[in-house]
Simulated assay, not measured.
Amino acid sequence: MSAPRPFKIPESVLVVIHTPALEVLLIQRADADEHWQSVTGSKDQLEEDFAQTAAREVWEETGLDVHAPGCHLHDWGLENVYEIWPQWRHRYAPGVSRNRERVFGLTVPAALPVRLSPREHVAQRWLPWREAADQCFSPSNAEAILMLSRFVG
């Protein structure tokens, strides 16, 4: 018999992966049809800082290394606080209904091939930033992508 999974920590990251030409990587969730998004994920431990979480989640979800030549992870200094969707609240401790999300950008040198985690994501695509924002199911993700031009250049 396996041990019960620990509750998720309601502190997470959103990482907008993009090229210098503002092409944005979107990945499609495996557990929700037509839910396209940037890389997201929760801290594994309360002590893990947001940059560590961002680097780990990018690696786990795409196989991209934020420390590779030509890559630059940038903390945008923005946070979103949002209501956790009811269908995902069982992953959190009883009574937890809100999540704090830190926003990062990851510049990569070109639209690189990615290695998806099939348990989490089933497809990927690179799109011009405005098109990518239109494809996101999450309003905070779309808003972050629309802010991309402020952080690049």
Score class of each variant (00 low, 15 high):
residue 1 M to T: 12
residue 1 M to A: 11
residue 2 S to E: 09
residue 2 S to L: 10
residue 3 A to H: 10
residue 4 P to A: 03
residue 4 P to H: 02
residue 4 P to E: 03
residue 5 R to P: 08
residue 10 P to C: 05
residue 12 S to Q: 13
residue 14 L to Y: 08
residue 14 L to H: 12
residue 17 I to R: 00
residue 19 T to K: 01
residue 21 A to N: 06
residue 21 A to L: 05
residue 23 E to Q: 12
residue 24 V to A: 00
residue 27 I to A: 06
residue 27 I to D: 03
residue 28 Q to C: 12
residue 28 Q to L: 12
residue 29 R to S: 06
residue 30 A to H: 10
residue 33 D to E: 14
residue 34 E to G: 09
residue 36 W to H: 03
residue 36 W to L: 02
residue 37 Q to T: 11
residue 47 E to N: 14
residue 48 E to K: 15
residue 49 D to L: 08
residue 50 F to S: 11
residue 51 A to H: 12
residue 51 A to R: 14
residue 52 Q to F: 04
residue 52 Q to G: 08
residue 53 T to E: 03
residue 55 A to E: 05
residue 56 R to E: 00
residue 58 V to W: 03
residue 60 E to R: 14
residue 61 E to Q: 13
residue 62 T to P: 04
residue 62 T to C: 02
residue 62 T to Q: 02
residue 62 T to S: 03
residue 63 G to P: 03
residue 64 L to W: 06
residue 65 D to N: 10
residue 66 V to A: 04
residue 67 H to P: 09
residue 67 H to N: 10
residue 72 H to Y: 09
residue 73 L to V: 01
residue 75 D to F: 10
residue 76 W to L: 10
residue 76 W to G: 04
residue 77 G to D: 03
residue 78 L to Q: 09
residue 78 L to F: 06
residue 79 E to H: 14
residue 80 N to L: 08
residue 81 V to F: 11
residue 83 E to M: 13
residue 83 E to G: 12
residue 84 I to N: 07
residue 86 P to A: 08
residue 91 R to E: 11
residue 92 Y to F: 15
residue 92 Y to K: 11
residue 93 A to H: 10
residue 94 P to Y: 04
residue 96 V to C: 04
residue 97 S to T: 15
residue 98 R to G: 10
residue 99 N to Y: 13
residue 100 R to I: 08
residue 102 R to P: 12
residue 103 V to C: 14
residue 104 F to E: 04
residue 106 L to T: 03
residue 106 L to R: 05
residue 108 V to T: 02
residue 109 P to C: 01
residue 109 P to T: 02
residue 109 P to V: 01
residue 110 A to S: 15
residue 110 A to P: 15
residue 112 L to D: 07
residue 121 H to A: 13
residue 122 V to Y: 12
residue 122 V to T: 15
residue 122 V to N: 15
residue 123 A to W: 05
residue 125 R to M: 07
residue 127 L to N: 05
residue 130 R to A: 02
residue 130 R to T: 01
residue 131 E to G: 01
residue 135 Q to K: 12
residue 135 Q to Y: 11
residue 135 Q to S: 11
residue 137 F to P: 12
residue 138 S to C: 10
residue 139 P to M: 07
residue 139 P to S: 11
residue 140 S to A: 13
residue 141 N to P: 08
residue 146 L to F: 01
residue 146 L to R: 09
residue 146 L to H: 02
residue 147 M to R: 15
residue 150 R to G: 09
residue 152 V to F: 04
residue 152 V to R: 07
residue 153 G to R: 05
residue 153 G to P: 01
